[in-house]
C-alpha cells in the first residue's frame, strides 16, 4: 500500500517537473520528487542512500538550481520561458497519457517478472544490527575496501567540476561579444577575393 502511494507521488511530481510553466516551479516539484524517493530508499533498506539523497540532492543540487534561476532573472525584466515543443494538453489528456504509459511499461515489466530475482524478505536480512544490509557501517566498509578504486575516482570528478566551473565562469570581466567589425571586414575581403577568382577563371 505504501508503495502505491509513493509511486503516485513520484510520478505526479515528475510530471510536474516536466510540465511546469516556470523553472522555479519545476525545482519545487523536483524537491518533492527527491524527498519521496528518499522515502522509497528507506523502504528498500537503503538508509545511508536515503540520507545522502536528502543532503546532496535536496540540499546542494536544488539550491544550486535556485541560485542560477535567481541569478538569471535578476537584472532583467522577467524570466521568460521560451516557446516549448511541449504541446499544451488539457489536464485530463495528460492524465490519460501518463496512465497509458504506466500501463504499457507495467505490462511489459510483468512479462519480465519471471526472469527477475525475488526480493529477499526483510526478516532474512540482519536488520537492526550495525552490520545490517544498507547500513552506514556496511556501506563504509565496502566503499573503503572492495570498492576503493571508484571512490578514489570520484575525487578526480569533483576536482574536474571545481576547476571546470572556475575556468568557465571565473573571468566575467572579459565576457565581451566578438569583434564584429573586424570579422565583417575579413569576410568582405574574402568574398571579394573569391569573386575576383571567379571572374579571372
Amino acid at each position: 500500500m505504501l508503495f502505491w502511494f509513493l509511486a503516485v507521488a513520484l510520478i505526479a511530481s515528475a510530471v510536474a517537473v516536466v510540465t511546469a510553466a516556470k523553472p522555479v516551479y519545476s525545482v519545487i516539484a523536483l524537491l518533492a520528487h527527491f524527498v519521496t524517493l528518499a522515502v522509497v530508499y528507506v523502504s528498500l533498506s537503503a538508509e545511508f542512500l536515503a540520507v545522502t539523497q536528502i543532503l546532496v540532492y535536496s540540499g546542494a543540487i536544488l539550491i544550486l538550481f535556485l541560485f542560477v534561476i535567481a541569478l538569471l532573472s535578476s537584472g532583467v525584466d522577467s524570466f521568460e520561458v521560451g516557446p516549448d515543443r511541449l504541446p499544451k494538453l488539457p489536464m485530463p489528456a495528460l492524465f490519460a497519457l501518463v496512465i497509458t504509459l504506466v500501463a504499457i511499461v507495467f505490462s511489459a515489466a510483468h512479462a519480465f517478472a519471471h526472469v527477475l530475482p525475488v526480493i529477499t524478505p526483510t526478516s532474512q536480512l540482519a536488520v537492526g544490527s550495525a552490520a545490517a544490509f544498507g547500513s552506514v557501517a556496511t556501506f563504509g566498509a565496502m566503499l573503503f575496501t572492495s570498492q576503493l578504486l571508484p571512490f578514489e575516482i570520484t575525487a578526480l570528478i569533483l576536482m574536474v567540476a571545481v576547476i571546470g566551473v572556475v575556468v568557465l565562469a571565473g573571468d566575467h570581466a572579459t565576457l565581451t561579444p566578438p569583434d564584429h567589425e573586424r570579422l565583417r571586414a575579413i569576410r568582405r575581403r574574402e568574398r571579394e577575393a573569391i569573386l575576383r577568382e571567379g571572374e579571372a577563371s
Binding site: S45, A46, T52, P117, F133
Partner: peptide
C-alpha cells in the same frame, strides 16, 4: 540491489549521486 542482496548497487547509486552533483555544477 535489495533483490540480489548485494550492496554494490548502493555503491553505484552513491557514485551516480556524486556524478550528478558535478554534472549539475558544470
Amino acid at each position: 540491489s535489495r533483490a540480489w542482496g548485494s550492496m554494490v548497487g548502493h555503491i553505484f547509486a552513491f557514485l551516480v549521486i556524486t556524478v550528478a552533483a558535478a554534472e549539475a555544477a558544470i
